[in-house]
Design a protein around this nucleic acid. Structure first.
Lengths: 238, 238
DNA sequence: CCGCTCCATTAAGATTTCATTAAGACATGG
DNA sequence: CCATGTCTTAATGAAATCTTAATGGAGCGG
């Protein structure tokens, strides 16, 4: 996962710096805003993972900001406020805030509560893209998340290099990949032999082609390289 | 949506009554538990929408309860505790709690924070939620609540690391987990050796595989990592 | 037809990665 | 303090994988 992006909305420069420097040491990215107006713009444009929001902004009521953000986004909002009255907390939480800290607050606690919110973001976003990315071509199926390959329903075992090779071809179905390109992608630019690639192609074909002499998936382009063909679904795949 | 079910875990009868009567007036359903043991059982059997948890239980460390519940469930946990030290809060939140209130607390604030959690439950439950206190795969059965593992009906003993390892694999059945991923998840990112992992894999296999040379559950992907296979139910499980 | 290049395939070494064992360090509870 | 169980580390042999080299076939121009 990439570094989370935190939007810090706080008009007091000292506190803002305290928060941002702390975030920096923890490896978070951050944007800042000092007014309600700016915070809304930032929330829209930079789509932060979490918003830390000071309620005491000069130009806008904090609860209104929460409501405004909530009208289009579920981004977690952690409120930081000088007001410790029950009513303030309840209003903010019911408006859509996810947490409420009163100043003066402990930086460590803020970080912990931030982690809680981030946990939820990560968890939710994992659910949204629940179906693992899969490549299907005829009877060939690559499950990238599982790292497995199926041919006509049966799982086949590939060595790491064979797997990388197949993925590379699959990512460029229909395109001819030159020898040099493949060698660079798989072995990383140095030290490699065409013959090595040929050997791996042979073993790979032996595994995924029923009749290696008349390949269905991987085609040789003499003097240039290889290419994976897009093949019509002829056999009971999946 | 039906009335939400809240599990109230609190050993002090007065506070418990305070909470439950409040919940009642708000139209919530509730169950109660006064010990850690009972709370786990309730969480498993009644599947509450939210758990309100007092950390100061007589029989079990509160953070352990959180961890145990989190091992199989994402039910929001709102902690209510007499301890107000930063460290206590952070430990609880990082263990998986969603919120932390210190006694004495305002009932209205508790209700507001409860609504925050419920809002999320309602939002989340649209997506498929896999909250099962047991994991079954062929003859292998993990009871997360009890922390026990059965193989073909017989209970087997696993050391803590072996158990975590098995749970990690079980949570990602069918997926290949890289060495680095496993090391990070089990040992927490620092200082660990592949060979250590291999040793634990060997001992784990010796315990759950009848024929360790031809593993049924845990497959090794050379140069990459390990993976648990989804295995058809072939032997009389349970 | 011959010689050349490019390719597929096979086989055999070299290297990496793995499983397993055993011994020592560490912690835990009595 | 001992006893037990658990974790770590190191060493060994085995297995899988990668590399390299050799052989033979197909296409092409001379």
């Amino acid at each position: 996962m990439n570094k989370p992006l935190i939007l810090v909305v706080e008009d007091d420069k000292a506190i803002r710096n305290l928060i941002t420097t702390t975030l920096e040491t923890q490896g978070y990215l951050y944007h800042t805003a000092a007014t309600g107006e700016a915070s809304i713009l930032e929330a829209v444009s930079s789509r932060p993972d979490v918003i830390i929001l000071d309620l005491g902004l000069p130009d806008m009521d904090g609860v209104d900001i929460i409501r405004k953000v909530r009208s289009w986004s579920n981004t977690p909002i952690v409120v930081v406020s000088a007001r410790s009255e029950d009513k303030d907390k309840i209003d903010a939480l019911d408006a859509g805030a996810d947490d409420y800290l009163t100043k003066p607050f402990s930086v460590d606690e803020l970080l912990a509560r931030l982690r809680v919110s981030l946990r939820r973001v990560r968890y939710d976003s994992g659910k949204l893209r629940r179906d693992s990315p899969v490549f299907v071509n005829g009877g060939l199926k690559i499950d990238y998340a599982a790292g497995s390959v199926r041919l006509d329903g049966k799982e086949i075992h590939l060595t790491p290099i064979e797997y990388k090779l197949l993925c590379l071809l699959a990512k460029n179905v229909g395109k001819v990949l030159t020898h040099n390109f493949i060698l660079r992608e798989i072995w990383g630019s140095y030290s490699s032999d065409l013959s090595a690639l040929r050997v791996f192609m042979a073993t790979l074909r032996k595994k995924i082609e029923k009749d290696p002499s008349r390949p269905r998936y991987i085609q040789t382009h003499i003097g240039v390289g290889y290419r994976m063909l897009r093949v019509g679904d002829d056999s009971a795949g999946n």
